[in-house]
Write a protein that binds this DNA or RNA. Structure first.
Length: 361
DNA sequence: AATTCGGGGGT
DNA sequence: ACCCCAGAATT
């Protein structure tokens, strides 16, 4: 069978399967490019069920790019709270501003123009262009990568640049003349629902008889994965510092880890250092104030993408000095009941929940 | 080419 | 525990 003939069969099988099996997802009920853009940003490295409630809330609050452009970043981050990869929210906001200033509030309609906006890379540009505007352009996400590695029995590491290019070329060659949006989504849908990382449901797969991995019974070893190194661990200490019934929180700098989010001040415990002396040191270095360290109110274990932390939270009293934002973007004394108005990292929310429960007793 | 960026659900 | 998710930006 020629490649072209095989591609045609794959196209038909996928489009037919998709027409009958596509999940009813909120962003599939709209043709609004803004809404589709928003969904694609939220779905970056994020599972569909996780993104859905965020998408609904966000779209209700900001129904157009112009509304989004006018919003404060703090408001956007609060809506993004818990979704992770917070630079997405910052880039979304910046892109909305550019869409208003450069494009009269309307999203660019081509892949190449979309690529110029912050937060939109190769995948997302292809997704918006094909799904919202019908441009005949491919996309490769984690799902498509896995499907293609199996169907075409590609043994190389898909993280390798040459393999990546091969996958994009395949995705392009596979594109049908029409219905590219549905076709691209069908590839992702298959990867998500049938051609799963483990225990793929080959017995239900519309491509089973076209799949080389299936023929060679290699669906369980493809795509080849690389061994990951163990994550480093850190011990962190933070202070819930009270003064006149209010708690001192700081806003992290705009870029980097958890950029723009609020947190309880503190920092890493150094080797050989006690928790209490580390907390005194960090508060002195970052805020230039003196505190009294009280009892430990929480220990939170949390895993980020590339390290673990064990966070010890201590109740503290402010003793002297007006806090200065030496290592952060801003400082604020807030009533405990106002903590939920601010966007906090997930690890800090566990501490906030403990404070809330204590308050009710 | 590698690393940095969150958080959670499935296994 | 480990894997990976509709990846992009930075180094």
């Amino acid at each position: 069978m020629t490649d072209r003939r095989r591609y045609t069969r794959i196209q038909r099988a996928l489009l037919q399967w998709y027409a009958a099996n596509a999940r009813d997802l909120p962003w599939r009920r709209t043709r609004d490019p803004y809404a589709i853009w928003l969904s694609e940003i939220m779905l970056q490295q994020t599972r569909v069920p996780t993104a859905i409630p965020y998408y609904e809330r966000f779209l209700k609050r900001f129904s157009t790019a112009a509304h989004l452009a006018r919003a404060r970043l703090d408001t956007i981050l609060k809506l993004w709270e818990g979704l992770g990869y917070y630079s997405r929210a910052r880039n979304l906001h910046q892109a909305a501003k550019e869409i208003v200033s450069r494009c009269h509030g309307r999203l660019p309609q081509t892949k190449d123009e979309l690529l110029t906006l912050p937060g939109i890379g190769r995948y997302t540009a292809g997704a918006i262009a094909s799904i919202a505007f019908g441009e005949r352009t491919p996309l490769v996400d984690g799902n498509v990568e896995r499907v293609l590695c199996r169907v075409f029995r590609i043994h190389g590491n898909p993280k390798n640049a040459a393999i990546k290019e091969r996958l994009w070329k395949l995705a392009e060659d596979l594109l049908p003349e029409h219905e590219v949006g549905h076709f691209n989504q069908s590839l992702m849908e298959l990867g998500s629902e049938i051609c799963t990382p483990r225990n793929p449901r080959c017995d239900e797969c519309p491509l089973a008889n076209l799949c080389e991995a299936n023929h060679h019974n290699e669906q369980d070893i493809l795509p080849t994965r690389t061994a990951k190194k163990p994550l480093p661990s850190h011990v962190v200490v933070v202070g819930v510092i009270y003064r006149a019934g209010r708690i001192l929180i700081d806003k992290r700098k705009p870029k980097g880890l958890l950029g723009g989010l609020w947190e309880f001040p503190g920092g890493k415990v150094q080797p050989g250092e006690s928790l209490e002396s580390a907390l005194h040191r960090e508060i002195r270095e970052e805020l230039d104030i003196e505190i009294e360290v009280g009892s430990e109110i929480a220990v939170v274990d949390h895993t980020y993408t590339h390290f673990h932390v064990e966070i010890h939270a201590f109740e503290c009293k402010h003793l002297k000095g007006e806090p200065r934002p030496l290592a952060c973007a801003a400082l604020k004394w807030v009533r405990p009941s106002d903590l939920p108005r601010h966007a906090f990292p997930a690890a800090n929310k566990k501490i906030i929940e403990i404070l809330r429960v204590r308050r009710r007793h």
